[in-house]
Write a protein that binds this DNA or RNA. Sequence first.
RNA 1: GGGUAGGUACCGAAGUGGCCAAACGGGGCGGACUGUAAAUCCGCUGGCUUACGCCUUCACAGGUUCGAAUCCUGUCCUGCCCA
Length: 390
Amino acid sequence: MQSPQAQLEILKRGAAQIVSEAELLAKLRSGRPLNVKLGVDPTAPDIHLGFTVALTKLRQFQDLGHQAILIIGDFTAMIGDPTGRSKTRPHLSHDQIMQNAASFQQQAFKILDPQRTRTVFNGEWFEIMPFEQVMRLNARVTLQQMLQREDFKARVDRGEPVHLHEIQYPIMQGWDSVKVKADVEIGGTDQLFNILVGRDLQREEGQEQQVVFLMPLLEGLDGVQKMSKSLGNYVGVSEPPVTMFGKLMSISDTLMERYYLLLLGEALPAGHPMDAKKQLAFRLVERYHSREGAQAALDDFNTRFSKRDLDKAELPEFAVQSNASDLLSVIVAGYGECFQLKKSRGDARRLVEQGSVQLNGEKLLDVKASLELKRGDVLRLDKTRAVRLA
RNA sequence: GGGUAGGUACCGAAGUGGCCAAACGGGGCGGACUGUAAAUCCGCUGGCUUACGCCUUCACAGGUUCGAAUCCUGUCCUGCCCA
C-alpha cells in the first residue's frame, strides 16, 4: 500500500473540495481500510457519465486498498433528492425502484471492484424506523439551515412549493452515514450540505466524522446544465457503442476539455479538436464496452459523417409494409420500428418539406410524389438516422 | 380555518366572449455553412389532411350563450397575508 501522503495526492486529483484534507490524511494514516460511502437513488435504470465521475473516484479509493460502500437509496428514492431541483420529484413505486437498482448495480460494477464493495439498501433501516427517532433526527437540523440552501431558497423566492418531505432528505442521507460508519462520503459539489448533515449526526452518535469528498459536476451534452436523465443531455454507460460515440462527437470544443479532465483525468491533447474528440469518444466507448466496439463505432462514424457515405454504413434494416406505400407512412414506421421514436405524420411532413429526408442521397421534397422503393435503398430520415430498406 | 392571487402548449409567459390551435421568449427539431463543434442566417414546433378544412386542447366536472381559454356554479391543486 502506498504511503498516506502519496494516497492523498492521488485522491486529490480532480476533486473539487475536501472537508478536510487534514482529516482525510489522519484517517489514511490509521492504516485501516476506510469505509468510503457513495449513495445513489435508483430513480432511473441507467447510469450516465455524470455519475461515473464519482464512481471513478470511488474505484480509485478501492485501488488504494479501501472499502467501498455503495448505498442504494431504495427508500430515499421514494422521496427524491431535492438537491438542485426546481420541482418536487415524481413518486416512484417500490417495484420500479428495485428494478432500477438491479440494472444500476450491474452497470456500477463496470467501474467498481466487486471484491471491495459492500452494497446496502437504506430501506433496511428506514422502513422500520420508529417515528420517535425520526423526530429526534429532525431536531438536528433547523429550518433556517434548510432555507439557506440555494435550491429551496430559489423555490421560495419564486413562490413555488417546497414540501416538507423534501426537507427530510438530508437527514436521511446523513443517517445512512451513521448506519454504515462512513469515513468518507463522495458526492457532487451540490451534495455539500447533505454530506455535512451526515457529519453532525455521526458526532451525535459518538462516531468519528466522515470526510466530505466532493467531485465537480459534469455538464451534459448541451454544455450548460449538469448532465441529467431528465434533461435528456446525458450519455448512458449502457448505450450502444455507436450511440455513445455519436453523442460524444456532438459536444462542443469547450465541453470536450471538461470531459477530458473529469472522465479521463487528463488534459486536452494538442492537435485538431476533431481528432481529440474522436479519441475521447473512442476511449470512453472502449471503457464501457470493448476495444472492438469502439473501433467499430469509430469506423462507422467515419463512413457516415466524415465520408458521408451512408451506403457503406451499418444501418438498421427496415422492411416496408406493402400497405404503407406513401412516403409519410414509411417515415413514421421507420422511426417507430428502427428507433423507437413516435413521430406524427405532421413531423414526417415537416422533415420532408425541410429537406431532411433523402433516398440514396437525393432529397425527397415532395410529400405526395409516388415512391419507388427497392431493396437495399438507403433512406435518410434526419441528420443522425437512416435506414436500409429490406 | 379566514382573506387574497393564481392554475394556458416541453418550459416561461400574453390573451379576459367571436379575428385563438392560442402572441412573444427560451428550449427542441430541420435546412444552409461546418469538424454531427461553435457562431451566424432561414424555416418548423397539438393531431389528421395535397389543399379547403376538420378534430382534440387553455387544472377537472357541469352550466349560460348562436359562439367560451375568456362569463357562472362546484371540485381539486398552488402562492401570499392573517390565524
